[in-house]
């Protein structure tokens, strides 16, 4: 069957062609821009390795900070001498927490959040406890790892 007229006019054909070309051009441009604007994000570390001797003689009821990726971890010796490692970042709005030895509590100055000596949220807006890390000792090294993470040290 031969149609007397074309279903697609020259105008429609050209508009579709140019429109499609423009759409392809702009989506490609947008994709490239977005790819560039978003960096390859670093991951939060699974574990960090510290020097044991820097942390061994920490006085009881005090903390020592160590870098945890872009944020901070706390090595904490309780008043009774037991140790704990936790992430020093408030579970509410990500401010760094401070330790108050007098009250034996962790405190976030941004929105007045409080955590007890086990990192449990007890007062203020924080919705969750502080993250607790697992501490393992290996020779001169102190390995602080996220819970449930298998630590594989690179062979020296």
């Amino acid at each position: 069957m031969k149609l007397k007229y074309s279903l697609v006019t020259r105008r429609t054909f050209l508009n579709t062609l140019f429109g499609g070309w423009l759409a392809a051009f702009f989506s490609g441009t947008f994709y490239a821009l977005m790819r560039f604007a978003f960096p390859t994000l670093g991951k939060e570390p699974d574990f960090v390795v510290l020097n044991k001797k820097d942390f061994m003689d920490l006085a009881s009821n005090s903390i020592k900070r160590f870098p945890w990726g872009g944020t901070v971890g706390l090595y904490y010796t309780k008043a009774d001498g037991s140790v704990l490692a936790l992430k020093g970042v408030c579970s509410h709005m990500e401010c760094n927490v401070d330790y108050k030895p007098a009250e034996k509590r962790f405190y976030c100055a941004c929105h007045q959040g409080w955590f007890d000596e086990n990192g449990t949220n007890i007062k203020g807006p924080p919705p969750k406890p502080l993250e607790i890390f697992v501490i393992t000792e290996e020779d001169e090294k102190l390995i602080i790892a996220k819970k449930g993470v298998k630590v594989e040290l690179p062979k020296a």
């Binding site: 900070r65 870098p67 944020t71 901070v72 401010c95 927490v97 100055a109 941004c110």
Partner: peptide
Amino acid sequence: DPLAPPPEDV
């Protein structure tokens, strides 16, 4: 300092 806590009454 990314390691330090913010000042009081921030």
